[in-house]
Structures are given as C-alpha cells and as structure tokens.
C-alpha cells in the first residue's frame, strides 16, 4: 500500500493524474449542463466515435503522420546543415538571420495557397508546410550551440594547429547536440501543426481534411481526430526525448539525481 501510494504521488504518475482529472471535469460539465454533442461532445462520446470510426480516422491519421515525419526529417537535415553553417560563420549569421526571422514570421497558412499554385494539393504541400514551420527552431538552436564554444577552448585548439573543421568536428558539433535535441522536441510538435494546416486547405486525405469535412456533420469524430493528433504528437515528442537522453546523457547530468531527491 505504501509503495502504491508513493507511486500515485510521484512525478511519473502526475501527467496521468492530471489528464484523467481534466477528462473527468470535461465529462461532468457535458453531462450536468447537457451540452449538445454538436458543440462539445463528452470524452465518452468522443471515445465511442473513435472506436466506431477507427478505420476512417486511422487512414487519415496515417497520412498526417507520414507527411509530418517526412517534413520533420527534411527540417532536421536542413536545419542541422544550416545551423552548423550559420553558427560557424559570423558572416553567414549576419547575412541570413534577418531573412530567417522574416520567413519564420510569415503565417504558414498563408503559404499553403502559394503551394497549391506551385505543386497542387495533397501530400507534397503538407510535407513542405510541415518542413517550413519546423526547421527554424532547429537552425537557431544548432547555431547557438556551435557559436558559443568557450573562447579558451578555441585558443587551446588553435594553439595546437587546429583548423576550423577540427574545432567544428571535435568540439562545436558535439557541444551543440543538447541544443539540437531540445529543438527536435519543439520541431516535431510544430511539424504536426504544419501538416494539419495544409490538409485543412489543400488535401483529400489527412486529419486536417477529415476535421474540415466533419465540422458541420460529425463533430464527435472531428474531436476524435483532434485528440488522435494530440496523442501522436505526444508519442513523437516522447521518442525525441528518448533519443535526447540516449545521446546527451552528459548534458542532463545531475538532473536524474535531482529528480531522485525531490521525488518522495
């Protein structure tokens, strides 16, 4: 009983506790005030709809998952390369930063009509939108990691005859990895936003498409699709966090111990 009680109060269980509580309040609100399922369906109604329409939802979710991961993968490759380049060269940094910030400020919804003109509708614009919304945090984070190598360490290496490439490979890139992995967690959730945005306007398949289609007629299924996107994003975030822990355990040193002492 003691260990079970301790588990219930532990930080590991906290997200489940809070999520369950939220669903409970939601359910109670819908039932007590008799809210119409066309305005806000109760969690049980959504769950029921999720099971009932699972094949249709999953076909669309698969599409969204695919475009998101593809756009995200492109963002990782492009973001890494550009981030290292910008971080290593102050000239490039100065030259490209205003452009990057400007591009990032453009609402990606506004980009979709342009993409329709250029590449039509469907998978490609969704991938491009996911890519264009998620590469920015990767670029900025990697550039920061690369650019902030300790000057003394740079001196040590240069006094050994190190070339710029040596400093990049031996120090700058490894030390930017924690920044990189931190940005992946942001980028993967943004990629979902990008692909769903594109699908609402320019697709015949995908969660975004399904939601627009269901908006007037099948609201519980719309919510089911919405929640599935959220769940997928949390899962992908978890994968990114796992990869981060695996590769940069040295950067989160002390966090584990700290968690151990503050947890009861």
């Amino acid at each position: 009983m003691g260990t079970f009680w301790r588990f219930l109060r532990s930080p590991a269980f906290a997200p489940w506790l809070i999520t369950a509580g939220l669903l409970l309040v939601w359910e109670a609100y819908c039932r007590l005030l008799d809210v119409s399922p066309f305005v806000l369906p109760a969690p049980t109604t959504i769950a029921h709809s999720m099971v009932r329409f699972w094949p249709a939802i999953w076909i669309n979710a698969e599409q969204t998952l695919f475009t998101t991961v593809a756009g995200f993968a492109l963002a990782v490759g492009f973001g890494l390369a550009l981030g290292v380049a910008i971080g290593a060269s102050p000239w490039l940094y100065q030259a490209l930063y205003p452009l990057l910030i400007g591009f990032n400020a453009i609402p990606k919804v506004a980009l979709v009509p342009v993409l329709i003109v250029w590449v039509g509708i469907g998978t490609i614009p969704a991938i491009i939108t996911a890519f264009s919304i998620s590469f920015f945090p990767i670029v900025v984070n990697v550039a920061t990691g690369v650019a902030t190598v300790e000057p003394e360490l740079r001196d040590v290496l240069r006094s050994l005859g190190a070339r710029q490439r040596d400093i990049l490979v031996k120090v700058a890139i490894p030390r930017s990895l924690p920044y990189f992995f931190a940005s992946l967690k942001i980028a993967i959730t943004l990629a979902f936003v990008g692909s769903v945005i594109s699908e609402t306007v320019a697709a015949n398949r995908g969660i975004g498409y399904l939601m627009v289609k269901d908006a007037g007629e099948n609201v519980p299924r719309m919510f089911a699709a919405l929640i599935l996107v959220a769940v997928l994003a949390v899962v992908m975030y978890g994968v990114a966090a796992l990869v981060e822990r695996r590769f940069t355990h040295w950067a989160t040193r002390g966090v584990d111990q700290a968690g151990g002492t503050t947890g009861f």
Binding site: E152, L153, V156, L160, G161, P174, R175, A251
Partner: peptide, 18 residues
C-alpha cells in the same frame, strides 16, 4: 601564427563533458 609547441591551461579547466 599560433605555435604548435605550446601547451595551455586556464583558470577554467574547460574539459569536454561528452
């Protein structure tokens, strides 16, 4: 230009944590 017969150490040991 930077000499190669030199060793350096500073107040901050700046070891690579990985």
């Amino acid at each position: 230009r930077p000499l190669k017969i030199v060793g350096m150490a500073f107040q901050n040991p700046i070891m690579l944590p990985w």
